[in-house]
Amino acid sequence: MNSQYAVAVHILALISTFPDHSSSADIADSVGTNPVVIRGVTGQLRRAGLLSTQRGVAGATLTRPAAQITLLDVYRAVNGDASVFRLHDHPHPQCPVGANIQGTLEQRFGVAQAAMERELERTTLADVMSDLAVRAG
């Protein structure tokens, strides 16, 4: 998993907290990256139905309350249905390990992926924002 997921959560929390400061430049300052990166991730969030933007107008808004956006929603917005776990493509079929490793790992990875998704589904953007408020003092 790359850092786009964390950036996406950061973007949503920032827009929810400071809706008047949601330009890609403002968000990029907070995230510590380039506005082009922010526009790319914002586009993914928009296509997933989590953000609303208007062409030619700076800023974005959440399409539903933070308590109704789960971390699984965000994960799927930036990762699609892809698993966080990747298998290598060409194990040697005549090797006892190579011939069986993918089936074994697919099962184990599937269990781990399902557990991760259950946990992400239990946590909302509002939960993240509550944690942020506690940390900020």
Rank of each mutant, 00 (worst) to 15 (best):
residue 1 M to L: 04
residue 1 M to V: 02
residue 3 S to K: 03
residue 9 V to Q: 00
residue 12 L to I: 00
residue 13 A to F: 08
residue 15 I to Y: 01
residue 16 S to F: 05
residue 17 T to D: 08
residue 20 D to F: 06
residue 22 S to C: 04
residue 23 S to M: 07
residue 25 A to W: 08
residue 28 A to H: 14
residue 31 V to G: 00
residue 33 T to K: 10
residue 35 P to N: 12
residue 36 V to Q: 08
residue 37 V to Q: 04
residue 38 I to N: 02
residue 40 G to R: 01
residue 42 T to P: 03
residue 45 L to T: 00
residue 45 L to N: 06
residue 46 R to S: 14
residue 46 R to M: 14
residue 49 G to E: 07
residue 49 G to R: 07
residue 57 V to I: 15
residue 59 G to E: 15
residue 59 G to S: 12
residue 59 G to A: 12
residue 62 L to K: 01
residue 63 T to V: 14
residue 64 R to L: 09
residue 66 A to T: 05
residue 68 Q to N: 07
residue 68 Q to W: 14
residue 68 Q to I: 05
residue 69 I to V: 09
residue 70 T to R: 04
residue 70 T to E: 11
residue 72 L to S: 01
residue 75 Y to C: 02
residue 79 N to A: 05
residue 81 D to E: 10
residue 82 A to F: 10
residue 84 V to N: 05
residue 86 R to W: 09
residue 93 P to M: 13
residue 94 Q to S: 12
residue 94 Q to Y: 14
residue 94 Q to W: 10
residue 94 Q to N: 12
residue 95 C to H: 14
residue 95 C to E: 13
residue 97 V to T: 07
residue 98 G to F: 13
residue 99 A to E: 07
residue 100 N to Q: 11
residue 101 I to V: 14
residue 106 E to R: 15
residue 107 Q to Y: 11
residue 107 Q to V: 01
residue 108 R to S: 08
residue 108 R to N: 11
residue 108 R to P: 11
residue 109 F to S: 05
residue 109 F to D: 04
residue 109 F to P: 00
residue 111 V to Q: 08
residue 113 Q to W: 05
residue 113 Q to I: 05
residue 115 A to I: 12
residue 116 M to C: 12
residue 118 R to I: 10
residue 118 R to M: 13
residue 119 E to L: 10
residue 121 E to N: 10
residue 122 R to W: 11
residue 123 T to E: 14
residue 124 T to G: 04
residue 128 V to Q: 08
residue 129 M to T: 03
residue 130 S to Q: 15
residue 132 L to I: 09
residue 133 A to Y: 15
residue 136 A to K: 15
